[in-house]
Design a protein around this nucleic acid. Sequence first.
DNA 1: GGTAGCGGGTATGTGCTCGG
DNA 2: CCGAGCACATACCCGCTACC
Length: 524
Amino acid sequence: MRGSRRSPSAPGASRRGLTDAEEAASKYAGKRRKMTQKTAARRKPEKSETEAEAVRHQAGARRRSGRLLLQEPQETANASSSSLADRKDAKMSLQRAAVDFEQFRNPSNGDAKPTSPNLGTPSRGQSVRTLQHAKQEASPATAAKSLPSGVKREVRVKSEFAIDATERLAKAAADEASSAALSTKTEVANEAPSESKLAPLAACAASTGFFLSGAKGRRKKVVGLRAASAAPPRAGGGGEPGDIEDLSPQKKAEKTNLEKFAALPDSPPPPHFNDIWTAVTEMRAKRDAPVDSMGVEAMGALALQNGGGEKEKRFSILVAVMLSSQTKDEQTAACMQRLRDADVLSPEKMSRLSVEELTQLLYGVGFHRNKARFLKEACETILAKHGGDIPPTYEELVQLRGVGPKMANIAVHAGWDRLEGIAVDVHVHRIANRLNWVRTKTPIETQHAVQRFLPRELWAEINLLFVGFGQQICRPVKPLCHECKASQWCPVGRKATRGAKNFADVSVRNESETATLAADAEAE
DNA sequence: GGTAGCGGGTATGTGCTCGG
DNA sequence: CCGAGCACATACCCGCTACC
């Protein structure tokens, strides 16, 4: 499905040589593009709430009254070669193939039984599968082979999320400490990764009988939105772990949840991992990047220097991390100084400011208006639910508006000295992909792909290491490959140092380079 | 000087799946 | 058939910088 959007289907391009599935997929992609353009056109003017509601209502009515009306004329003309049913079938086969890709990749596991072992107990990242589906499915290998070549990579990516819930349950059950650890998440966070990752799953399974999942289809109704689903402070003993409503996947929770990655197997480190890590560490030895002196950790340290306690340090860290997105470290540091000068760096004082006052203080950082709103909201939440201290867990931090996965991971580590995951920002995401360590679209995918091979003792280091490296050498545009000590193991660096004229020549990752590197590593 | 692009998160709209 | 909910794409927010 998603792969279809990537199929090389430039408008007007010849369709010759495409398989039926590819053609159907590319037409579907075209339709999506056109419809999103329509959406954009409709979205241009500002709408009042009632107008927006009316649009939604009409949209619903259109859907109910028949989807074929939405087809573009060109598509209708081509209906003989790609009927709606064809597209549906193609899409369904892609989805089924994606779900079973884990078994395709590891055919020895489970003796090539493609059917899900837990029909009726959907897990995160796994589509709801019926007996009918199970019967329909051919072997995973066959399913994958039947895919258009252009979408195979997409299936590979999707498979990273396809997690066998039974396997996770078995692991969780084997780990006796995990469910006890859930109620005091603080205690488990520094222990083995499997434990901290599985604890929420185990508890959820124990209390509900199944994993609440990202499964498609109808599901237990979610009660309330953000406020209703905000997890109670577990460290304080509040709330009931595993309550289905508490864990209900609102949009953001889905985007930020760790569970769908929980049971991904470890993978071997990429070729020359140790060489690259050592080289980057050497290049960062001076610790003279902006992030070193003005990053979030530095803001926390400054709070302590100024006579604050741990609580003040943590609040400074949260504020700094919320301000830091889309903002240079210099600007973040300057803004933090303004907040210090105004003596509002505590939840009590900051919550007493109006949004307008806060907006003025934040002027200079990106999106200062939004951030002012989010900060005020965060302060109120902190005071109301967390006793004036920042939330202690990843799950609770990402409940705060304006706090995403990266920020939550940084805040948990810098503020509470615990590791729940590596913090992947744009630098880590870019560099990991540039080195071909991962092939991912989003930072959260990168986070979990990297965690699969990165030794846990390095989790704390990678963010600061790579952010500084990305600021100084491995820059987004025009990376300084000639100054990089790791360029010999980097596809981009190798090409650049071989005489490419500019970054544009090397910005497209080279498959053969990767293959060469992998072969080199194997030869060793 | 104008413009394109970057960056992280939120909000919204759409087609679609699936259970009741 | 309907509605809940999912996956996905995209607009938007804003300041800054690089490039033409």
